[in-house]
Design a protein around this nucleic acid. Structure first.
Length: 408
RNA sequence: GGAUGAGUUCCCGAGUGGUUAAAGGGGGCAGACUGUAAAUCUGCUGCGCGAGCUACGGUGGUUCGAAUCCACCCUCAUCCA
């Protein structure tokens, strides 16, 4: 199976400029392609992870990836897919985020011996001279066309600043620069990047009279049409400090029935035959598919050891047996106690299980809290220190949030 | 630069001097049912044990009392230049 067919079979391909040419390039390892990552946060998330997987897949097929860090484009902010303006980031934030991205990418993509490159568009974008740039590439862009681009159209009502309007030009310039300096002939990106990417292939054609290609990958949406990889408290991060391997595992363990197979195809490296086999499963059998999905992804992102721990913890908590050692834990000290005791709302707050004590009280009143296997019925219940000693106290919030509090 | 309109709690959006921690919806959380799924039904949804405190773009003011009235400022949209 060719890499192109595989990508297609996994449902990863959304749009592309020239199917035949692209097939030819990537199937024969002739593509030098780039994917851009704007440093909008201090960790990569699931969307980035898909892009990294794609890089890896194409790299394994002999193509050369360039990871482009958006130190320059991050100064502007991509309006694509947003209904409001991004808040501007300071240079310090951008630099810090880039450093974080770098660390995470290196774990995932092999950058040794020039097998892949990592470059920062700050290196060329920041030194551009305004008038020079206008004369150089400004004439190649039609404002009429730009306004027709989906990413701007959506903003015509809410408003679009000139700053953001220029994002497409910056991204197009990136492709143009990479094409000239690194022989980069393809760009990949999320489907929301389509118009920005076309800007680049157009620019290369107009300026150099040459062809470059673009292909987008399907955005990972759940069956309700929402972007996956988001929780009510924000993104599912790849940084274990921001989203623990256990939480990460649980996120995937809890995807909807309709979404499991899609996720397996798009996100894991499991052979397609195996996934097709699982496609026949139905009903509660799908739970096994979810276990596999969660395990595979945790393994990819956090390594086998962490994946095992997360799986064991989940097993212990939901099924019984297994060890409880790796469940989410908060260590308390004597200072957290008052006269050797702590109230239930306070304890839950310290464990980060609730945003406020009020919320904890509400939960208790609604019968959503168990401690040490017993339902708490009175919010004023006081927990003595000895219950928190040793193995600690197991707290259950709702049906599937488990936490352990240990004193000392 | 001119004219008009808007900024409300996580989001959308009602409210236009006290009875408003603020209708309604969405989202979220909890309970029931389940398969750690979906759908459905029920309850909750600013903080505080409480007295109470903090909130309606910002700052001042009028008033016994303001999200609601006044002044100035900021931000955004629409039309005109």
């Amino acid at each position: 199976m060719t890499i192109y067919d595989e990508l297609k079979a996994r449902g990863l391909i959304a749009q592309m400029t020239d199917e035949e040419e692209i097939k030819e390039l990537i199937n024969n390892g002739k593509a030098t392609f780039y994917i851009g990552f704007d440093p909008t946060a201090d960790s990569l998330h699931v969307g980035h992870f898909m892009a990294l997987c794609l890089m890896k897949r194409l790299q394994m097929a002999g193509n050369k990836p360039i990871a482009l860090l958006g130190g320059g484009t991050g100064m502007i902010g991509d309006p694509s897919g947003r209904s409001d303006m991004r808040s501007m980031m300071t240079v310090e934030t951008i630099d810090h985020n880039i450093a974080c991205f770098k660390k995470q990418m290196e774990r995932f993509i092999d950058f040794s011996d020039g097998k892949a490159l990592m470059v920062n568009n700050a290196d060329w974008l920041l030194k551009l001279n305004y008038v020079e740039l206008l004369r150089d590439v400004g004439a190649c862009f039609s404002v009429n066309n730009m306004l027709r681009a989906e990413c701007y159209k959506q903003r015509m009502e809410k408003g679009l600043s000139f700053l953001e309007f220029n994002y497409m030009i910056m991204q197009s310039y990136d492709f143009y620069a990479l094409y000239q300096n690194y022989g980069c002939n393809m760009q990949f990106g999320g489907d929301d990047q389509w118009s920005n990417m076309l800007g680049g292939t157009d620019l290369i054609r107009r300026k150099l009279g040459e062809n470059a290609y673009a292909m987008t990958i399907t955005l990972l949406m759940n069956s309700e049409g929402k972007k996956m990889g988001k929780t009510q408290s924000g993104a599912v991060w790849l940084d274990p400090e921001k989203t623990s391997p256990y939480e990460f595992y649980q996120y995937w363990r809890n995807v909807g029935d309709e979404d499991v197979l899609k996720c397996l195809r798009m996100l894991t490296f499991l052979p397609l035959e195996q996934i097709d086999e699982m496609d026949k499963w139905e009903g509660s059998q799908l739970n096994e598919a979810k276990n596999i999905l969660a395990y595979e992804l945790t393994k990819l992102v956090h390594g086998e050891e962490e994946a095992e721990k997360a799986r064991n913890a989940a097993k212990a908590l939901f099924v019984g047996g297994g060890d409880l050692e790796h469940m989410p834990t908060t260590n308390l000290t004597d200072e957290d106690l008052t006269d050797g005791t702590i109230t239930v709302p306070e304890l839950m707050l310290k464990c980060g299980l609730v945003p406020s004590k009020k919320e904890a009280r509400r939960l208790v009143e609604q019968g959503g809290v168990e401690m040490g296997g017993e339902k708490i019925t009175d919010p004023n219940t006081v927990i003595p220190a000895d219950k928190l000693a040793g193995e600690g106290l197991m707290i259950k919030k709702g049906k599937k949030v488990f936490h352990r509090a240990i004193l000392g």
